[in-house]
């Protein structure tokens, strides 16, 4: 069983956008609780609100209305500085397009969040080497992203997401740019992080690869939750 207090708590969470005179609803009145150690899979068509919800949980965006608390951080009222610290220390993000910095090599890309968090260089380096060895990228340490395959890039992104030991891993279409074989490897890694390290993982995806491992599946349509499926 999961601990009684949720790591993510959303109440009537709403995000709207107003480009010009019209108003677009990103997500509308969402209520959600995620407990530590869960694997949550967000499902839905394009524009259903998966990425909006993920960006709010990641502290990349501000809610328009409602409440959102993640790991005891009130993201509705958080200042920009507090959000920066939150992104650095609490969450690790994996993206569809990998989002590695092209001028940095693999090792530097992985080390960067640790250095930004103010951790000592030697510790960050050791941790990065450990992660990259685990992800079978030891031979690619000094390669730039342009010299890597899609799978290698995504594994590098996973290493970067883990460098600061986040309690929450957020993955936005992590298999979207990968072939099925590499996609499975990435999902297996995320599941492994959940099962063996106890990290909470939230994956927004169209793919069914993660479905068997999900402890909670949330279906979104037009910014609202249409269905929740709990599995154990």
């Amino acid at each position: 069983m999961y601990p009684t207090s949720p790591i993510i708590s959303a109440k009537a969470l709403t995000r709207t956008y107003s480009p010009g005179t019209s108003t677009i609803i990103g997500i509308n009145e969402i209520n959600l609780e995620v407990f530590p150690g869960q694997i949550v899979v967000l499902k839905g068509n394009s524009g259903s609100g998966k990425s909006t919800l993920l960006s709010l949980i990641a502290g990349l965006d501000h809610p328009t209305r409602g409440e959102l608390t993640v790991a005891n951080h009130d993201l509705k009222t958080a200042t920009p500085t507090a959000l920066t610290r939150y992104r650095r220390d609490v969450v690790g993000m994996v993206f569809q397009s990998f989002n590695l910095l092209p001028t940095l090599n693999v090792l530097e890309n992985v080390c960067l969040p640790g250095l930004l968090a103010g951790h000592p260089d030697s510790r960050v380096r050791a941790k990065a080497n450990e992660l990259l060895e685990w992800l079978e990228l030891k031979s690619r340490l000094h390669h730039r992203p342009s010299e890597l395959s899609g799978g290698e890039m995504q594994r590098t992104a996973i290493a970067r997401a883990l460098i600061n030991d986040p309690t929450l891993i957020l993955a936005d279409e992590p298999t979207g740019n990968l072939d099925s074989c590499n996609g499975k490897i990435v999902i297996d890694l995320l599941v492994d992080l959940n099962r063996h390290q106890g990290r909470t993982v939230i994956i927004a995806t169209h793919s069914k690869l993660a479905d068997p491992y999900a402890t909670l599946q949330i279906y979104l349509r037009d910014g609202t939750i249409t269905k929740k499926t709990c599995q154990r």
Binding site: R88, N99, L101
Partner: peptide, 16 residues
């Protein structure tokens, strides 16, 4: 711009 957004997302401050 996209690289800047990446930096921001991994914890770089706007002042940096």
């Amino acid at each position: 711009r996209h690289e800047l957004a990446i930096l921001r997302s991994i914890g770089a401050s706007s002042h940096l």
